[in-house]
């Protein structure tokens, strides 16, 4: 037996995203953000997207290009304070923003990936982040329903992949990537190195290949991946 090769040209991978799609983006700040896949999504110009990402990156990086190009209708996120355009578009009503506590965003994505419909939590139950969400009693205590999140497409950034789509993330670039890998109907991973089968030791695989549909090899890293000089 041999595991199938999922390496794909970036143009073909991103062309599968439709207008109106819900798209998960890995990353926390720079590390783990699939900047090259996002650039291609900007080039192709799919519109009316719902973006699910921890943050909105910074000016001139990642999500900021999608916002500047008018491709985003809705953002489900935890913190956009480092992106003035995102804050301005929220304030002007140009985009709809749903804020979520960070670990609850992670659990909603994980639940979506695990085939669950929702999670029950007490986080943010007594704040405006919890306003309007259903409450139920669990073992005598009140809990709040947070619905699971799934997406049409997840775009991930891996340090290393093999051609089957086993993924390995570097340092704090792991963040939301392995959770989103499980929570979308179609998963596209860009990788800094794409290895032959067998070169990624099974014990070092963070995301198993069956979760990944397409692997895009990064020939070069743009400036966006670099160290930010603030």
């Amino acid at each position: 037996m041999i595991l199938p090769d999922k390496t794909t040209l970036i143009e073909d991978a991103i062309a599968g995203i439709r207008d109106g799609a819900t798209v998960m983006l890995g990353g926390f700040g720079v590390p783990g953000t699939p900047f090259t896949l996002i650039r291609e999504l900007v080039r192709q110009g799919q519109r009316d997207l719902t973006i699910i990402k921890n943050d909105a990156n910074e000016a001139g990086m990642g999500v900021d290009h999608l916002l500047a190009n008018g491709q985003v209708a809705r953002l489900i996120t935890t913190h956009i304070g480092l992106n003035p355009r995102a804050v301005a578009m929220l304030n002007s009503g140009e985009i709809d923003v749903e804020f979520c506590a960070q670990g609850i965003l992670a659990e909603r994505v994980r639940a979506g990936g695990a085939g669950l419909k929702a999670i029950l939590t007490d986080i943010a139950m007594q704040t405006e982040l919890g306003a309007g969400k259903p409450r139920i009693e669990v073992n005598g205590a009140e809990a709040m329903v947070e619905t699971a999140l799934r997406a049409d497409v997840a775009l991930l950034h891996a340090d290393q992949a093999d051609v089957f789509g086993n993924l390995d993330y570097a340092a704090t670039a792991r963040n939301f990537n392995p959770l989103m890998a499980m929570a979308a109907d179609h998963v596209i991973a860009e990788a800094e190195a794409v290895l032959p089968l067998g070169d990624l030791p099974p014990d070092e695989v963070h995301t198993p290949g069956p979760f990944v549909d397409q692997v895009v090899r990064l020939d070069a890293l743009s400036e966006e991946y670099g160290v930010v000089r603030r």
Binding site: T77, A124, L129
Partner: peptide
Amino acid sequence: FSPGAGGGVELAQK
């Protein structure tokens, strides 16, 4: 100023 709470809610609550 409404940047979102990030991880602050869970840190504060738990």
